[in-house]
Every structure is written in structure tokens, then in C-alpha cells.
Nucleic acid binder design. Sequence first.
DNA 1: CTTGAACCTGTAGTCGCTACAGATGCGACC
DNA 2: GGTCGCATCTGTAGCGACTACAGGTTCAAG
Lengths: 140, 140
Amino acid sequence: MTFTTSRGALTRGTLAKRAGCHIETVRYYEKIGLLAPPARSPGGHRLYREADQRRLRFILRGRELGFPIEELRSLLSMVDEHAYTCGDIQAMTLTHLTSVRDRIRDLQRLERTLSTISDRCTGGQVPDCPIIDEMLGAPA
Amino acid sequence: MTFTTSRGALTRGTLAKRAGCHIETVRYYEKIGLLAPPARSPGGHRLYREADQRRLRFILRGRELGFPIEELRSLLSMVDEHAYTCGDIQAMTLTHLTSVRDRIRDLQRLERTLSTISDRCTGGQVPDCPIIDEMLGAPA
DNA sequence: CTTGAACCTGTAGTCGCTACAGATGCGACC
DNA sequence: GGTCGCATCTGTAGCGACTACAGGTTCAAG
């Protein structure tokens, strides 16, 4: 079992498992400066604390919400310095929400197009296909 | 005016403009083997024909429909060899359609989460924010 | 003290382009 | 035929957000 070391520190693998990400993601976030370089064991292994786990969870939760890394970097520094207002965060979120809605609309248009053209197919062994014809010729 | 050369060949820039893509995309598609290496002028400039324009349009239309490059490679070789049935193409399209629908569902979930949490904001100069609290604590 | 998993480092690959630098070609005009 | 300026040529690096690998070391359990 790999849990914690003698003084309660977490290894990289354990941190990743607990926070719910790939082990290499932890190292990646350190490299790009989202996670601070942690303490090391005498042999050079990273040793994390509970605070690191909370910070990583924050980042991962932000990613799940679709925030890009650079926005998370801003969010983290605002939180670190307690320098934010609800209005600031809400504005960032609403901007982000707009882009999510745009993406949904784009995909819905695509969905309609794809279902329309595939509905026109007869299927089976027929050596002609309206999808190919559509791609060869006029746009749908 | 840059249209066609003496024998009706298209330059790379003209081809890109006519087909509707970035000039560098043409070279990229050649590099990855979607477009065949075209004839060259004595000085080494690419010279394209109408058939190249049709092929490029096919690829771009496929990209607009969201097909990944590798699927377009398959589609192109099937079309080149007249070796496809409507059923084959329809199956590819339906698989692709499913993944588009999955992505829509994921984004809709995200949209609901983001609008729910931003609705809880009071906004303005308030130094606490439910969005941040959410990211620091329990998942929404 | 041995064993095997976990970790260390740096780097390359993913996808689909786009951008750049530095050199050369092309065609229009004079 | 000379000059001008745009277009094109080549190879390579960068984007975003990781993930995978190679080749070596450390850790901890038995």
C-alpha cells in the first residue's frame, strides 16, 4: 500500500490518485508553475502536503469547468492573495459560459447537418452515397 | 491579379483562396499525404489543376463536417478507388455523429453547472464568491 | 538484502494547423 | 532588360493540455 510517508507526506502517485488526475499531470502543473515545487525526500522524490492536494483539486475542478490553464493561473493568484471580488469571478465565468454556449451551438449545427445527410443514405451495398456526393459537390 | 498561369495552372495562394483555406494548409495537406505533390514551375513553385481544387474542397468540407484527418484519408482512398458502399460511409458518419452528440451532452452539462454556480453570485465588490467556494470545496 | 513498484529526469508525441525566418521566383511595369 | 514588390520556397517552432517513453535511481515491504 502506498499512502503517506512517515511524516504524513504524500508521494506524487498518491497525490495524483487522491486528487484524481494522471501522475504526469502533477509534474506538468509544477513545470508550468501552477503547483509550487514541493519538498523532496533525501533521494529526490517529491513530498506533498494536504495543502498541495487542495490546490491540485482546485485546479482540476477548474479544468472540469472548462477554464483554460491561463485563467486558472489568474484565479489561483487572486485566491492566493485574497484579491478578488465576486463580480470579477462572475465576469470571468460568464465570459467562459458564453464561449461554451457558442461551442454548443456550433456542434448542434454540425449535428443537424450530419443527421440530415446520413438520413438521405440508403445504406447497404449501394455503390453511391449522398454523403460523398455532398462532399464532392455543393454544400448541404 | 493572381489567377492562373499561362496553361491554366493555379498557384498555391490562388488554390487556397478558391478552396477557402489558409495558404499553409495546402502545404500541410501535401506533407501529410492528403494532397499529391503537384507539378512545379521551372523555379520550383507549385502548380495546381482543377482536380486539386476539387480534392481540396472535399477535404475542407470533410473537416467542416468534423471528420478527423485520418478518417478523411480513408474516405479519400475509398473514393479514389471507387471502393465504397453507402453503408460503409453511413456507418462512419453515424459513428462520428455519436461522438458529436456526446460532446454536445458534455458541454450542456458544463453549461448547466456554470450557469447554476454563476447564478449564485451576488457580484459586485463582495470579497467572497460562491464560484471560488465551489472550486475550493465540494463539487457542484 | 533482495525485489519490484514507484519514482526521477528530459524529451518527444498527440491534433490540426499557423507563423516565422531567410532565401528565391514571378510577373508587371518602365 | 532591369527593377520592384508580392508570392512563394524551405525547414522548423509554436499553440493547448497533457501523455508516453527511455534509461536510470529510490523506496519500502518481506
